[in-house]
Design a protein around this nucleic acid. Sequence first.
RNA 1: GGCUCCAUCAUCUAACGGUUAGGAUUUCAGGUUUUCAUCCUGGCCACAGGGGUUCAAAUCCCCUUGGAGUCACCA
Length: 460
Amino acid sequence: MIVTRFAPSPTGYLHIGGLRTALLSYLWARRNGGKFLLRIEDTDFSRNDEAAARAIVEAFKWVGLEHDGEIAYQSSRLAIYQEHVQKLLDEGKAYRCYMSREELDALREEQMGRKERAKYDNRYRDFTGTPPQGREAVIRIKAPLEGTITVQDGVKGDVVFNVADILDDFIIARSDGTPTYNFVVAVDDALMGVTDVIRGDDHLSNTPKQIVVYDALGFTIPKFFHVPMIHNSEGKKLSKRDGATDVMMYKTMGYTPQALLNFLVRLGWSHGDQEIFSMEEMLSLFDPSHINRSASVYNTDKLDWLNSHYLKNTPNEALCALLEFHGVMLMDHDKREILLDALKDRAKTLVEMATLVSEILVTPASYDEGALKKGFKAESREILATFSDAMSSASELHLPTDYHHLMESVVTQLGIGFGKIGQPLRIALMGKLSGPGLDTVMAIIGVEATQERIAALLNR
RNA sequence: GGCUCCAUCAUCUAACGGUUAGGAUUUCAGGUUUUCAUCCUGGCCACAGGGGUUCAAAUCCCCUUGGAGUCACCA
């Protein structure tokens, strides 16, 4: 069985890059009928872990990813780590190091001065004497001293590290007894039965250390898939400073989860020329071994396009529900269908759509200067008045076509082109020169409101 | 700086030794539309450079250049 996991450190919200690796892990697990686990990596300082976990679960819920089982908190698994540290100690695969921070710093500086790599000098590796008084020891693992470690990566291929270049006896437990990252990751992944680790390739250079831990503890090494970074427009790793990186921001900006997921899955992965992927398609097509090796730049133009695509294809009922989050209550509106049909092709986001709704439903508070200049001419007053009168005497005005016919007959009667009535009427109804078809707008707001808006413009 | 990874249009990508290097987004030009948007049609735009290997290289190898990541008692 394939078991994957998403293991964020609690930073307060779910990052867009995190969502991508979570999505890929989720897809791979689900595709294989496996499990997708969630683990919060909170071994260090007292950051607000609970809130962070809630934020992540909330974001997962919004996009529809679901993890299996309970959320694992590393902070509550300390006993397990200690047990495994002890095991290594007992087996002589790890040892106490009494070197002080000052000594370590001094060593480092000395090495740097000689242009050497900063590296622990193994001074306590085989220490058997009496420990120095009053020193808290850290625990270091005995790492190999020579040879190579190969990370077999499903994305990058075999990556070979020279032990002498990268390793030393790294710390697995701090002087306060708490375990460090590379140790707990390996222990947890092994104990939780994770078979496929899909994560950002910023973790690639950590992997040899984790392999050392796997080996020391006799664990089976999982499959690794190191997914390339998402870069910002400067070509650097995407960070919190790059604006909208909080997944929930996309909800408030009016994006749909499908669009976001579709956008994310196409960053670094593709299936021929296909651009649109439903969740079902992602589930049946995604394979991490087809992930690109190179980083991609985060550019939301395509996200906008995808979002408008999904908006167009969302049933009105569902659209109504989505719009409620943005303060638009349309469930009981009798012209709901006409309204939404007219709008769903015109908006890139739900926020835009909400704005468009109110532009139609609410009488314009002011008129665009440029529009007046361009579209409201001397003869416009009479044309609008004529049209308004015609509305009063018309018998049946319900559907857009009814209004359209009326406009046609007025235009014919006056011997003018459509534009002569269209422009001023549009200004009266919308306050500007762009918008959905006038017949549609009138059908939505009705005869009375149309006449009121015409009067408002004429009396201004 | 050491180590590691990466390199096709502005951007996301296809190509798995043989293509006029394809698609999408963006952009531009037409068309449809009473307007705007949508939509349709078309255009512009790429194999980083240099060596090999091969009948044949965007594809395989090497070098150069450029970019990124990582080097903690953070995760």
